[in-house]
Design a protein around this nucleic acid. Sequence first.
DNA 1: GAAATCGGTATACTTTAGGAAACCAGTATA
DNA 2: TATACTGGTTTCCTAAAGTATACCGATTTC
Lengths: 126, 126
Amino acid sequence: METVEHDKRKCPTHLSGHECTARLLPVKDALDILSGKWKLQIIISLTFGKKRFKQIQREIPGLTPKMLSKELKELEINELASRHVYDTSPVTVEYEITPYGKTLKPLIEELHKWGAKHRKRIIARK
Amino acid sequence: METVEHDKRKCPTHLSGHECTARLLPVKDALDILSGKWKLQIIISLTFGKKRFKQIQREIPGLTPKMLSKELKELEINELASRHVYDTSPVTVEYEITPYGKTLKPLIEELHKWGAKHRKRIIARK
DNA sequence: GAAATCGGTATACTTTAGGAAACCAGTATA
DNA sequence: TATACTGGTTTCCTAAAGTATACCGATTTC
């Protein structure tokens, strides 16, 4: 029953090295995009329409400008949100979810579905 | 730790309080379960069969006993994995994914799908 | 003239996630 | 007798994540 080979220590024994990388890395990539306290709240907020900096901040309670700035930059780098500057005074800046950002929808939906079931379960257990 | 509490925060203006809670909290709950460096690797490892403590540790490179212990406890609390102790000597402990834990599969699959596309995109852009 | 708005930045701090190493008792192996 | 395995715990540490607060110049409103 215990047929653990010693030369396969880098990956789970049931997976080859290639299979292991192929399975774990993308999941980790996706999680990197979504994890953290604010990223998803911002993304979800943007799925409801273009928003200005302070507007996002007002909508998400507790979110400091420093964090918002940092997260928006990361969303931009990953092409999930875009930043548009209009030459008004004072300057107007709008953030918008990109078409690519919208491809997150099924994933977020799945998170929502599972999370909702889980929440019901936890509450029922108390 | 991963307790589900009622959140009285204000919500984005475009959503009613109820809609906001309904939308954001479950997503956060799901993410709490999956985020972190080791949780998903452990879950995925367990989907391939029962495992013993040291066996999991050997399969996932870099995973320290402290982290493994902590993560397994959380998985147990959330009823995603179960712990079975057998009265052998030395004691045998087996961890197994629960039926409930298996319900994470579609979500993990979605993370994998999106992550794989994202990975291709990033690599292609370089 | 004072206050508030815009889109942020700078600095300093606390909190959390995670890592390294040592250690435990009981048993088996060399 | 010495070593290694079992399933973990304990302590100390660092790096990253996140918080708090003040500030900026330009402009609009009270």
